[in-house]
Computed example of a mutant assay.
Amino acid sequence: MPNLKLKEPLSEMKDKKISSKISLKNSRLFPVEDSIFAKGTGMIAVKTPINKKVGNLGRKAFTILEYLSEAEALTTSALSNLMGYYRYDVKGALKSLVSTGLVREIEVATSLGIFKLWVKSDIKLPQNAQEACRLAALGLFYAWAKKEVPNFEWSLLKIKKKPVMAEMTFLPKGQMNRIKWLIDVPRRGEKPHPNANIFIFPTLAEGKSLAPQGKRFTCDLLLMVNDGADLSQKIFEVS
């Protein structure tokens, strides 16, 4: 069985191997055994009448627009993590944005149920449910990185006939050169991109078995849990 290495804080990331190891016996307990973002089966863009009488948008709504401008698509959970508000409060701001036509609501069906994805109205919608699941998982990672990674920059990579990925650059503390990561999010049944620097799998078990040797990985289930651990504690390497 491969060993899992816990990575160092991203603020101190260097191009070196880490020798510390973590036992699965001490892994955090997950509220569910599988990720709702593992595999998409259907998707619809919800049609909502535009309410021209909606009053001034509040601070939460403008903050959401800022995050969506950078990440392009986020779930309610990712926004809640980013903003430090309860999901109920975030949903209220999203409802106002949808009513004004500034944000679109997408319902994505999976084998485990339905989740909502939010995009700005001037952003192209996901091509299909599988891409929506990829965007949702990328959004989970974005939320943690945006809060914790120094000098953080984020962009989505959308290449025709290729699965959507993300590129993240950051400048670790005390270093002169920025680090660039290509982030792949293999959904169930998809092969990891060989050139990616870090992978987001649906579950930890899939990461252990599918992540290329020497590459970093995390999983949806770890990124869903706001358990007090920082992002570096949610990233591992197979050795």
Rank of each mutant, 00 (worst) to 15 (best):
N3K: 09
K5C: 08
S11G: 07
S11I: 15
M13I: 04
K14S: 12
D15E: 14
I22K: 15
S23P: 12
L24D: 07
K25G: 07
N26W: 13
L29G: 08
L29N: 14
L29W: 12
D34W: 02
D34A: 00
I36G: 08
F37S: 01
K39L: 09
G40D: 07
N56G: 11
L57W: 02
A61F: 08
F62K: 06
Y67H: 14
Y67C: 10
L68I: 14
E70R: 05
E72Q: 12
T75S: 15
T76E: 15
T76D: 12
A78L: 13
S80Q: 10
N81Y: 09
N81P: 09
M83R: 05
Y85H: 14
Y86C: 07
Y88P: 00
V90C: 10
K91E: 12
G92H: 08
L94W: 01
L94F: 01
K95L: 08
K95D: 06
L97I: 13
V98D: 01
T100M: 13
G101L: 14
L102A: 14
L102I: 14
E105R: 13
I106H: 08
E107T: 06
V108E: 00
S111W: 13
F115C: 11
K120Y: 11
S121F: 02
S121E: 11
I123H: 13
I123Y: 13
P126W: 01
Q127E: 00
Q127A: 03
N128Y: 06
A129L: 03
L135C: 06
G139H: 05
Y142M: 01
A143M: 10
W144S: 00
W144I: 06
K146A: 15
K147S: 07
E148W: 06
F152E: 09
W154Y: 15
K161D: 11
K162M: 12
A166R: 03
M168W: 05
T169L: 05
L171Q: 13
K173F: 13
G174P: 10
Q175F: 14
M176S: 11
N177E: 13
R178V: 12
I179E: 09
W181E: 03
I183W: 04
I183V: 15
R188I: 04
G189Q: 06
E190H: 02
P192K: 05
N197F: 06
P202K: 09
L204Y: 00
A205L: 15
K208H: 04
S209Q: 01
L210P: 00
K215Y: 06
R216V: 11
F217R: 03
T218A: 07
T218D: 10
C219H: 05
L221Y: 07
L222V: 05
L222S: 04
L222C: 03
L223T: 04
M224S: 08
V225S: 10
V225W: 05
N226I: 10
N226W: 13
D227V: 13
G228I: 10
G228K: 11
G228W: 14
Q233W: 15
K234P: 04
I235W: 02
V238T: 05
S239N: 07
